[in-house]
Design a protein around this nucleic acid. Structure first.
Lengths: 219, 219
DNA sequence: GCTATTCCTTGACAGTCGTCAAGTTTTTCC
DNA sequence: GGAAAAACTTGACGACTGTCAAGGAATAGC
């Protein structure tokens, strides 16, 4: 086996590799593109009424292509759920990073909270839909638990920093803190979709008090 | 028009009425019977995968009968949701009524809370499924909002009495109190179905602390 | 006991679903 | 530019869906 020959094979191999990688990149790009289309369809119709043909119509391809990029419907929806996570989980980080006073953090958080409630309402209702699906179908359960954990961490960063700025400490565990704020969000969302704007406003007015309930101030 | 004639027609009318009422009673009885079968099917499969034929198989009738007693699927499921409410909404009332100390109420509540979590888990996951469906489909929204209100009242009776027994007062609004405890429940249920028993136990251990967070004690 | 009404079953309908194979179009590579 | 591979479309399949009409079985009223 000569050096030249090895060199040639190495070059050929590297080339093949480059091609393969480019193909994989293209493949993955299309996959996520279709996963995003899936996400929007799911957000609009909900899990129960989302069909592959409907998803395809929300993309620029035909329904058959979905089986070219995904093994089956589960595979597709799982990927869509993962896309949701990318969008969702760092929402409050900037507010946390830039706030220098407790009030600033609190007000920024409340504003962002109800901003995303109105802005991304369909996406959020999908999240709750899928989280509930995982109670019936274990397919997404692992992904759901993982995302739920990231949401909990996200909330915990907010409340932890808020307590710090107040010179106090969180009054409850990360878990309780999360479910409380998430519960407020869920409720406000139900009112939002029911067109009950004054109840949403009421939730907004209550949210600062909830935050204060969740931290022990130093006196 | 003679008195006798009027008397005859009155008797006849009353008789007709009695017959009609009996028929209505029978009709309603079958309706609720089928609604209960529907409820169990929904609890087992979830909204997305529940079909009329599946429901009929969980009853002692054939699938055609459902359209004899219900206008359509929506009508049937709406009735099933109402059946859920009958089962669900007075769960803690006895504990509230019989407890004479705060500790007793707290411990009784916690016990009942995790009892029904394990016992009626499938029914509860259905409730959350339907509540979420109402974010996509306004058909059940009114019923959902009504039931949610009753659940909130139920929780409020518990916490109100707990505060009273402690000689304190609730620390948050009825709404915030509800979403907090409901959030704990939802989370525990997700862990329950994920088979994560130690996380459920952890939630149980935390619940008394959550109750105390929700009342201001008198000092 | 006969009749009329109620109750329930059966089978079919039009439509939708996920899946996949066959074939067409587009891109890639030398 | 022509061959090979990838990307995409189309149409069909069996299964399942809600709905409903036709008819049989059970019951009620006289």
């Amino acid at each position: 086996m000569s050096g030249t020959l090895r060199g040639v094979t190495e070059v050929a191999a590297r080339k093949q590799d480059r091609i393969a990688r480019r193909q994989v990149d293209k493949f993955d790009a299309r996959r996520t593109e279709l996963a995003v289309a899936t996400l929007h369809t799911l957000a609009e119709l909900g899990y129960a009424r989302t069909s592959l043909r409907e998803i395809a119509q929300n993309s620029e391809f035909s329904h058959g292509v979905l089986h070219y990029y995904f093994a089956d419907k589960r595979d597709l929806i799982t990927e869509a759920v993962r896309q949701y996570e990318v969008v969702c989980v760092t929402r409050y980080d900037e507010v946390v990073a830039t706030s220098t006073t407790a009030e600033q953090l609190r007000d920024g958080f409340v504003a962002m909270f109800f901003d995303t409630l109105g802005q991304d309402a369909t996406l959020h209702r999908l999240w709750y839909d899928l989280r509930n699906q995982s109670l019936f179908d274990e397919t997404f359960r692992a992904d759901v638990l993982e995302i739920d954990g990231h949401r909990e961490d996200m909330v915990w960063r907010v409340v932890g920093r808020y307590a710090e700025l107040l010179g106090g400490a969180p009054a409850a565990s990360s878990a309780v803190t999360y479910v409380t704020l998430d519960g407020v969000f869920q409720r406000a969302m139900l009112q939002h979709f029911a067109g009950n704007t004054e109840m949403v406003a009421q939730s907004r007015a209550e949210l600062p008090g909830v935050l204060d309930l969740l931290v022990k101030k130093a006196d």
